[in-house]
Design a protein around this nucleic acid. Structure first.
Lengths: 155, 155
DNA sequence: GGTTGACCTCAATCATACTTGAGGTTTTAT
DNA sequence: ATAAAACCTCAAGTATGATTGAGGTCAACC
């Protein structure tokens, strides 16, 4: 068993170790803690110690961020994990499904967007009086003030 | 012809009109101008006036932002538009293709990410000694320090 | 010709997501 | 036992993408 594996099994991870292993800086771990995304306890000398599952949490945080999800939203979702016990396979699985659904939505949004970009921005209608970009009337109805390309999806 | 259409054809758009039509605030238009994303000239009273194609530019800016592209990158791409003449259908079309390619990349990235999330975060390997999240060795090679889930794509 | 709305500049503020640095303590290794 | 490495807190700084407000000017309408 390597030193690192020993550390993992002994299950009292230092902030430096977690930082290296998860690929985020110590300062980011502090930051996530102040924001309530991860937790630690302190040893006698006031230094942070982590349970190994913090690594999974950080991996999830990074994956979610790469999907364009804000820390606040991530916090909300992580809050659905059990508080008292270490999350199980099923807990993480449920969470994963949640992310997947969001990702599917985002992908669909992007695809709609791509089609829209193709159909509208790439179109030839620079004629001022016909292009939906310039003319709200045949595009978004009269409640809006025109050329609002995106607001009928999420965001 | 409506008043708005008249305004468009006369082609001296005020900042307020552009704001309403494009769905962004006047302050955002000022901001885009300081960042070099749009342009205006001034009338005798020092007020901004815009050419109608600014509406298309703003629509493009918003669409690109929704794709997750930064203003800086958008600026770079808009810079490929002709400087002297009003952009033609072909100019916008080329730009659109550029966005489309980026969007396709991002969608692909998201899909890879979703698969990864599914396969890894949702997996059952909480065993510390086997999971790629906890164990770099069989996952990313030895140059990195493990659990870096995403860095082998863009970003 | 005056009032109202639209416009001007510039500095400050906001939100998100962190990083950096100062000044000091703890842990680890020799 | 001591020096280096790692850790601590807290305030300030950075970047992006804007918004808000103060103080003042310009334009449109009656």
């Amino acid at each position: 068993m390597t030193d690192q594996q020993k550390k993992l099994v002994e299950a009292n991870l230092t902030v430096g170790f977690v930082a290296k292993r998860s690929g985020v800086k110590v300062s980011a771990l502090h930051f996530y803690e102040t924001k309530g995304l991860i937790r630690s306890w302190r040893n006698n000398g006031n230094q942070r110690r982590y349970k190994p599952d913090v690594l999974r949490r950080v991996a999830v945080i990074k994956a979610a961020q790469a999907m364009g999800i804000t820390l606040e939203e991530i916090k909300q979702t992580l809050a659905t994990l059990p508080d008292k016990r270490t999350p199980t396979k099923e807990d993480w699985s449920a969470l994963s499904k949640n992310w997947q659904a969001q990702l599917d939505e985002r992908i669909a949004f992007m695809q709609r967007l791509r089609d829209r970009v193709d159909g509208c921005i790439g179109c030839g209608c620079l004629s001022m009086t016909k292009c939906p970009i310039y003319n709200k009337d045949d595009y978004l109805g009269d409640t809006q003030s025109g050329a609002v390309l995106l607001n009928n999806s999420q965001e």
